[in-house]
C-alpha cells in the first residue's frame, strides 16, 4: 500500500486545478455604490431607521435567512416606499428591491439569499419624504454559493 501520492498524481492534480474556470468576477464596492445611486439619485444616506438582520457567521451561503425592515411606525408623509439590499462580494451587486403598496401592513420582509463569500451586505430604505436610510452587516461565509454544484 502506497501512502505518498505519486508524482504523476500530483502533476495531474495540478493541471486539473489550472483547468478550472476562473472564479466569476465579484461586484465591488464601486458597483454597489453605483447600484445605490441608481436608487437614491445621489441623495445622502443616513444610518438608522432600517434594520438588517443576518447571521454573522454563515455555514452555507446557498440559503441565508435575511430579515430587513423598518420597525418604528412612521407618519404617512415619511412612510417607507421601498427597501433595497445590496451585496459587496457577490457576482452582482443587487439582491432584492421591494416596494410597499397601500395595503402593506409594515415595511419589512424576510427571504433567503445566496452569498458567494464573506462580505458586507447593505440595506437601504427609501422614505416618502425623500430621505434614505441605511444599515449594513459584515459577515463570514464558510461555504460559498453560486460557484459550483453542491
Amino acid at each position: 500500500m502506497r501512502l505518498a501520492p505519486s508524482r504523476r498524481f500530483v502533476l495531474g492534480a495540478g493541471a486539473a486545478l489550472l483547468a478550472l474556470p476562473a472564479t466569476p468576477a465579484r461586484a465591488t464596492k464601486a458597483d454597489v455604490a453605483a447600484a445605490i445611486r441608481a436608487i437614491t439619485g445621489g441623495a445622502p444616506l443616513r444610518p438608522g431607521r432600517v434594520k438588517l438582520d443576518l447571521p454573522l457567521l454563515v455555514e452555507n451561503g446557498n440559503a441565508v435567512a435575511m430579515t430587513v425592515g423598518v420597525a418604528d411606525p412612521l407618519p404617512a408623509a415619511e412612510r417607507v416606499l421601498s427597501l433595497h439590499v445590496f451585496a459587496e462580494g457577490n457576482p452582482l451587486p443587487n439582491v432584492i428591491h421591494a416596494y410597499f403598496g397601500p395595503r402593506s401592513g409594515a415595511p419589512r420582509l424576510a427571504t433567503r439569499i445566496r452569498l458567494a463569500t464573506s462580505q458586507t451586505i447593505v440595506a437601504v430604505a427609501a422614505c416618502a419624504d425623500g430621505t434614505f436610510w441605511t444599515d449594513s452587516v459584515e459577515l463570514l461565509v464558510t461555504l460559498a454559493a453560486c460557484i459550483d454544484d453542491l
Binding site: F100, S104, R108, L109, I113
Partner: peptide, 29 residues
C-alpha cells in the same frame, strides 16, 4: 395584491436562493 390594491412588489436578482421564500405584511381592510 389584496382587493385589487397592491400590498407588496419585489424584483428578485440571482442572489435570491432556490425555491424563493418570502415573508411580508399586509393590513386587513
Amino acid at each position: 395584491t389584496y382587493g385589487g390594491e397592491e400590498v407588496f412588489r419585489a424584483e428578485f436578482f440571482p442572489a435570491i436562493s432556490a425555491n424563493p421564500f418570502l415573508t411580508f405584511s399586509a393590513r386587513a381592510v
